[in-house]
Design a protein around this nucleic acid. Structure first.
Lengths: 361, 361
DNA sequence: TTAGGCTCTGAATCGCAGG
DNA sequence: ACCTGCGATTCAGAGCCTA
């Protein structure tokens, strides 16, 4: 175990990721994104129907002697990641059918708590040239908290907004990284065999971090994680073994222009907004003491007390308690249950009044 | 190890599947479909926002003391399945994130050779009621051969035909089993908590067997595998622990009319509708966070957030919501209201960008 | 007859701040 | 660390009823 160093923010560090991770202080990063070697087991070469050669992944870093060696490697870096992850941080690990079952099992064995598996559906996958299997049109991301009790961050409202006001699902349709986004060398060949699309990282980072948070990528590769983190106003730490990749990533990151601060923030969910006690509405005269509140169908009528309590028959208490009591329900959100009658006879839900106050403050 | 019996074709056998498997002759079935217990670990009760209770899976058969016990169980039945599987046969195993990584790892460890992982995308999944995760909108099927050298069957042309003459991809969009297909008891309650849709088994069986082949299901449950196998002119062997489920499955299977031998019983493939959320344009960099949008006359200017929301003065929300707010209109089609300014100063309506993406997918 | 509204339900590891 | 109580949270599809 080496000596601990200060958190090397916004840097690409060249070297073995496990060694680097051991130097980082514990519980120091908010999120980790890891796209480890897939342990692809290609046999021989693959040709398209027109006899052209498929440029598969056959790099040295993707070769392991057997599954046991791959498992040992996986457990080692995932162990160090868990140490470095903050108590309430989350990790994303991605893979394909060759390795993702090893990754998921290792996460569970090491004490992580899986929150979702997410499917990256490729809109433009490589076809299956031999016609011997289904077109491999997706990869899998596993999203996990450090443990079952983690109070992790999930920017629910932002994800919902990103999906036209429907809950974000666990299947994401995103094209492969091609065209101008793909890094290439002098000869126009792709620089990295598995460069991930920025759209994928955009969604990942936006889902589970806020501006200023630290995102670590132990297999930085072409630098997609760091580039998107910078653009979204997050800090990053990138680890990469190969100096050529690291250098290309640095150049790529340097060219990124961060988004304006207010654009990078995720839409705050209601939970994160400032709490307004119902009594405030009474104090400010928006709901005078003695006013009557109704549910939407006007089945019940309650009277407002000067202290912000409601009374409805025998039930007395907060807007939530009385709402729950009259419905005989275990709980109730009084803000959206109770309504005030306007002069025109129209019912206005309390939540509207609350939002008017929230905007003022 | 018990004595071997003749292959009990087209029967539902009641009892422990591992015990039954041990009695079956080796290398005797062409395909196996297994939907084992998922080992869900539900803690409390879950209510919908309207306070109704969610009927979760808390059956005794889904409870295991710990992951180790689940792994041991998994390895045991998968070992027997491999013995019973013909040399060139294939197996389908399905699960969700709770268990599928254990299943996939066990398959690999036992010598099976994974061919694909296939995603069952649910068109109508249950939402995430607490807003704490992504909507769990899929399950995973692992398709594997008995070993790396297996000369397995894959009905490439049938799958392609089933998919409007495009190669069948690894992500399948299929609705949940509901309505008339769902088995119910006298009181109208669902008979089995996890009955699978016949459309799913249709595709599975059609992909890897031919008429007359034997399909084994060690966790038959409500009998979907056997019913579809019979309809498609395949033989089946169903193992089921619970006599009630087995009895219901038998009745269901008896009612199935086999398709005519030459019938190309192809389900109409479902062309996917293309709904493009505005957030997609942001993620893909077509509209960067912080970009400014204008209405056609440039009366208003709004700023784009990283989550696809707009902000214009105090109004924040979707392109539609903010468009409506600034005009003080009840509603607004943001796609044709907002414009992006090009480098040449010309305004381009968002709808043009959306159509560019829709064409790609 | 039909259109529209209301109800019900589905493999679910489903709070959190403040005291 | 524990306890209290506020108050946040749902989509698609089938079935049924009413106008």
């Amino acid at each position: 175990m080496g000596t601990t160093i200060d958190l090397p923010l916004d840097q690409v560090l060249v070297g073995d990721c496990i060694a680097w991770l051991r130097h980082l202080p514990p519980a120091s990063v908010h999120a980790i994104f890891a796209d480890p070697p897939y342990n692809l087991q290609l046999k021989g070469t693959l040709r398209r129907p027109d006899d052209s050669l498929v440029d598969g992944v056959d790099d040295e870093w993707d070769r392991f002697p057997d599954l046991g060696a791959y498992d040992a490697f996986t457990r080692e870096w995932l162990t160090e990641c868990r140490r470095v992850l903050r108590k309430d941080g989350t990790i994303w690990v991605m893979g394909a059918y060759h390795n993702v079952f090893r990754l998921g099992s290792a996460l569970q064995d090491l004490g992580y708590w899986i929150l979702n598996d997410v499917i990256w559906r490729k809109s433009n996958p490589m076809p299956n040239f031999r016609g011997r299997r289904f077109t491999n049109a997706h990869e899998t991301l596993v999203w996990a908290a450090r443990g079952p009790e983690s109070r992790y961050r999930f920017n629910y409202a932002a994800m919902k907004a990103l999906n036209d006001d429907l809950q974000m699902r666990s299947d994401w349709l995103i094209p492969l990284c091609t065209g101008g986004e793909r890094l290439r060398d002098d000869k126009g060949a792709k620089l990295h065999p598995t460069q991930k699309p920025e759209a994928l990282l955009h969604r990942v980072i936006l889902a589970c971090t806020q501006p200023g948070d630290v995102v670590l990528d132990p297999f930085l590769g072409s630098g997609t994680t760091a580039a998107v983190a910078k653009r979204l106003g997050r800090r990053f730490i990138g680890l990469e073994r190969d100096p050529t990749y690291a250098q290309a990533a640095r150049a790529r990151i340097d060219a990124v222009e961060p988004a304006p601060e207010d654009a990078a923030a995720a839409l705050p969910s209601k939970r994160e907004q400032k709490r307004i006690p119902f009594g405030t509405l009474v104090e400010r005269g928006l709901v005078p003491p003695g006013a009557k509140l109704f549910d939407r169908q006007k089945r019940w009528e309650a009277v407002v007390g000067a202290d912000g309590t409601l009374r409805c028959g025998r039930a007395q208490g907060s807007i939530h308690q009385v709402g729950a009591a009259v419905q005989d329900a275990p709980s109730c959100n009084g803000w959206i249950f109770w309504h005030l009658e306007g002069r025109d006879g129209r019912l206005r839900v309390l939540d509207e009044l609350r939002e008017a106050i929230a905007r003022e403050e």
